[in-house]
């Protein structure tokens, strides 16, 4: 058996649970040792609040569209990633609702996930309550669509009819269908903030949106919105894992190049 077969065999047999526990312990350690670390800001958070202000100036509503974000049981990676966006996007919705409540901006949401639609209600209501204007929360502005086609067509229709002053599209859309909504929004002069789950959708955000952030950043939006130092320390801890993995890649590359492995 060759060296690389042995390594591969070992890797195959490392349980996913083992990897998770190792990462968890590193991040747990970071939550103590890296407290107080300062993080760079990410565009989605700042720009989303700016989007509310842009809507206030224009007197138009804001679109908060998370697409497929929510619990699903496809059981593979790209499906489970939509689950990771749930807490972050809901926290962002609360922050946007708080700002919108203060400035009197109407927030219209779009989701294809029924559970997420129900959860949106709680977070949005809380956000408007925190603004001091609970009466500005309109429950019927939480829009649920049974599938992506309906969401897409309805968003485009509203983008032209209302129109929206700005849109925050953080979540999962479907095989780049987000670009159809982006272009409808752009035609009406709306500001577009985007952060998609999947890379092919994010490439559309890079093409057409005014501000964008990546999947990993979007999962952490809640940490950026919080004043608590622990979540920020855990975020910084991710870099320790990345440095470790990069080191493995480099060392493995050198060993392979030298013919050792």
């Amino acid at each position: 058996m060759t060296m690389n077969q042995l390594v591969l065999q070992a890797l195959v047999r490392v349980d996913v649970l083992g990897v998770f526990i190792a990462f968890f312990l590193v991040l747990l350690g970071a939550s103590f040792t890296l407290r107080g670390v300062s993080l760079r800001s990410i565009p989605t958070v700042e720009a989303s609040l700016e989007a509310v202000r842009a809507c206030s100036e224009k007197g138009n509503p804001l679109l908060f569209d998370t697409g497929w974000t929510g619990a699903n049981f496809w059981g593979h990676s790209s499906g489970l990633t939509t689950l990771c966006f749930v807490p972050a996007t809901l926290e962002l919705l609360r922050a946007i609702s708080r700002e919108s409540g203060k400035l009197g901006v109407r927030v219209i949401t779009g989701t294809t996930n029924a559970v997420y639609a129900l959860m949106s209600h709680d977070f949005m209501q809380r956000g408007f309550a925190e603004s001091g204007h609970p009466e500005r929360f309109i429950p019927t502005d939480i829009r649920f669509y049974p599938d992506n086609t309906a969401l897409n067509l309805s968003d485009v229709e509203m983008a032209h009819r209302l129109p929206f002053g700005a849109a925050v599209m953080v979540g999962g859309h479907n095989q780049t269908s987000n670009v159809v909504i982006y272009e409808a929004l752009a035609t009406e002069g709306a500001m577009i903030v985007a952060g998609e789950i999947w890379p092919n959708d994010n490439s559309m955000a890079a093409l057409a949106a005014d501000y964008m952030s990546f999947s990993e950043e979007n999962i952490a939006i809640g940490s950026y919105l919080s004043d608590d130092p622990v979540p920020k320390a855990i975020l910084a801890g991710e870099d320790i894992i990345k440095v470790f993995l990069i080191a493995i890649v480099i060392i493995g590359g050198i060993l392979a190049g030298a013919g050792v492995w």
Binding site: C84, M119, E217, K242
Partner: peptide
């Protein structure tokens, strides 16, 4: 990076620093 971010999310949830209700 996304998977590492996901593990970090779970870590925050275990520490109750990330919530499923407001």
């Amino acid at each position: 990076s996304t998977y590492i971010g996901a593990v970090a999310l779970i870590t925050r949830m275990i520490l109750l620093k990330e919530r499923l209700r407001p």
